[in-house]
């Protein structure tokens, strides 16, 4: 974990409100592991509005070029600031943060991503398929603004399926429709998911009927990102009730069945 400045190599709009930022970081290329995240200062040097850093997954790592990329939707002041940065500008980030996932022994893996929640899963898909695992990448989007990413998906040595609610891309519907028949086509798969709360709640209900191990990569607003402030608390089931765990330093990955959603 280091606090570093990095030079932006590319920061392009790839769809309505959707951006991909690539920056030069030999340190992250070497040390970042899937499941972890970084946080980026989203205001100019010396200014403090927006005040807090923002957590981001790493979408992809290009080891040959020492470049990592972050996928983000412009939602508020922080991401709006990021979207205005150009090639040659610097960002200040800290990372890698959070705990890496250990998937060395995974042979068959189902990745389920909703919206910007696909960001950490793409790198996982790449690593997993690279180590010979059978990977099925299930992605759901509200709108087809993510569709330029399909060229990245095509490069994966993995099967993928797209659901899109606006009917402009893939199948019309949402990712959980994949399980609507009540039949589990992924009985012997390990499952990783990341996405909006409603998707995770539905997946929790669906997989409560099956025996799959399901790991959820959670998102939460964070103040410090390093386990100090206890702001990103999430309720995790425990004997006789629940305990608050920190998404940043205890997670961000948890067993989906153990998460108590509010």
């Amino acid at each position: 974990m280091k606090l570093l400045d990095a030079e932006i190599v590319n920061n392009i709009r790839i769809g309505e409100g959707l951006y991909k930022m690539e920056f030069f970081s030999p340190y992250l290329c070497k040390n970042f592991k899937p499941g972890q995240f970084i946080n980026i200062k989203c205001s100019p040097e010396g200014l403090f509005d927006p005040f807090l850093r923002r957590p981001f997954s790493i979408y992809d790592i290009e080891n040959n070029f020492n470049v990592v990329s972050v996928l983000y939707l412009v939602r508020g002041k922080g991401t709006k600031y990021l979207s205005g940065l150009e090639k040659g500008d610097n960002i200040n980030f800290c990372g890698p943060l959070g705990n890496p996932l250990s998937f060395e022994n995974d042979k068959k893996v189902l990745l389920i991503g909703g919206g910007i929640g696909i960001a950490p899963l793409y790198l996982m898909a790449k690593k997993l398929s690279g180590q010979g695992a059978l990977v099925y990448f299930l992605c759901g989007f509200k709108e087809s603004n993510f569709r330029l990413l399909e060229k990245d998906f095509l490069r994966l040595n993995a099967d993928y399926k797209i659901y899109c609610e606006d009917g402009m891309w893939g199948e019309v519907g949402i990712v959980t429709d994949e399980f609507a028949s009540g039949k589990n086509k992924f009985e012997d798969y390990k499952v990783y998911c990341c996405g909006p709360l409603e998707m995770l709640k539905k997946l929790q209900a669906i997989f409560s009927k099956y025996n799959n191990t399901v790991i959820a990569i959670l998102e939460e607003k964070m103040a410090c990102g390093i386990g100090v402030c206890m702001g990103c608390a999430v309720k995790i089931k425990q004997k006789g009730g629940f305990a608050y765990k920190k998404v940043c330093s205890d997670g961000p990955s948890f067993n989906l069945e153990e998460v108590l959603f509010g």
Binding site: F48, D49, P50, F51, L52, E220, K221, M222, A223, C229, M230, G231, C232, A233, V234, K235, A243, Y244, G262
Partner: peptide, 23 residues
Amino acid sequence: KKGNEPPRTCEVACGLLNSIGLQ
């Protein structure tokens, strides 16, 4: 002490609101 119900932090203009609840 367990602390307060989330959400526990909220960014505001030039600052931060928190209700960690002394966890």
